[in-house]
Amino acid sequence: MKYVIPAAIAIGVGLVVLASYLIPSPLLMSVRLVFTDWAVVLAGLAVLIGILNLIIVHSRRIQSGDRRWVYSLVTILAVLFTLLVGVTEGGRETTPALYRTDSISGMLFQGVIVSSLAALSSLVLFFMVIAAVKLLKTKPDAWSILFLAVVIVSLVGWIPLAVMAPTNRLRNWLIGVPAAAGARGILLGVALGTVVIGIRVLTGVERPYKD
């Protein structure tokens, strides 16, 4: 029974939601909306569990005297401070504090999170260029040479000079024909994989809800 009841609930809910997409029925649609609302509530609760997980992981790191305990302390203090500010400012206005420019939450979001994300995103480009340069050293084969040649043609093909017209055309052809065909092929494969894994879950063969 330990495995049967969760499996029956999961399969039943899954089949109802799938049926609501495939069979036009107001009843199925309304049931699906109820299930979706429950999922949203559970997802919100999961975020709280996630925050708790973050605090526990870093607390144990501090307790164990890890050499990076200072970072863990900063993380915990930042989490608690942000949570406190969010809860305090949350109930004052109708507009969420995060979207107000005069709120501390908004300032934290724009000043810390957005700027940190921008900094990390800029590092991505840097790492990618270095990796592309290292490629010939780490994987010196025909595929690597072809990959780099396509990257160079794609980049050079952006240059809007009359003398570059043949490269522009080659770049457009690369993006429009082989790259688009490959991308669609990969998307089709992913879609089929998703369908099959969906069938496995709906038939109770794949059970992520184990215990």
């Binding site: 990618m128 990796a131 592309a132 990959f147 990969i186 494969g189 994989g193």
Partner: peptide
């Protein structure tokens, strides 16, 4: 990854790459 951008990056940086539906098998 099921996304092309990550597949391109992984081709240059990872030892082994699973493309498209290979991640499901």
């Amino acid at each position: 990854s099921d996304r092309l951008e990550a597949q391109a990056v992984a081709f240059t940086m990872a030892d082994h790459l699973l493309i498209g539906e290979e991640i499901f098998v």
